[in-house]
Simulated assay, not measured.
Amino acid sequence: AKRNGTKQYFYVSDKPKTGMTKHPGSGKYVGRYTIPGSKSGVTSTVNITCTTARSNAKKNGDKWHLYDFATYCAIIWLYLIEFADWNCQITIGAGVTKSEYSGPVRNGMTDTMIYHTGNSTAGSIECAVQYRWVENLLGNVSQWVDGFNADGTTAYYCTDPSKYADDTTTGYTKIGTLPASGWIKDLTVTDNGLLIPKTIGGSETTYIPDFVWSSYGWSVLCVGGHWGGGSYAGLLYFNASNASSRSGSDISARLLCEA
Score class of each variant (00 low, 15 high):
S102K: 11
H23N: 12
S203V: 04
S219H: 13
G108V: 14
S13F: 15
D146G: 09
D85Y: 02
T110Y: 01
S120K: 00
D167K: 12
S38P: 11
T97V: 15
P24S: 07
G103T: 00
A53D: 09
N242A: 15
T43H: 02
I48F: 13
K22G: 06
Y72S: 03
E204C: 07
D160E: 14
P197E: 05
I35S: 08
K28S: 07
I196Q: 09
T110D: 11
C127M: 08
S244T: 11
L194H: 12
K58F: 01
Y157H: 07
S203R: 10
G5I: 08
S252D: 03
S55L: 11
S214G: 08
G176V: 04
G201R: 03
G93A: 05
T121W: 02
Y11L: 05
G95T: 02
D146F: 08
I48T: 15
H116D: 14
S215W: 13
A243G: 14
Q8P: 12
E135G: 10
S249V: 06
T6N: 10
G37C: 03
K185N: 09
I92D: 04
V42G: 01
R246H: 10
S99Y: 13
T112F: 03
L138Q: 13
N107R: 04
K63M: 12
A122R: 09
T6I: 04
A165L: 01
G193D: 03
L194P: 05
K98H: 10
D85R: 05
S124D: 12
A253T: 01
V189F: 11
S203N: 12
T21C: 04
H65E: 12
T206I: 01
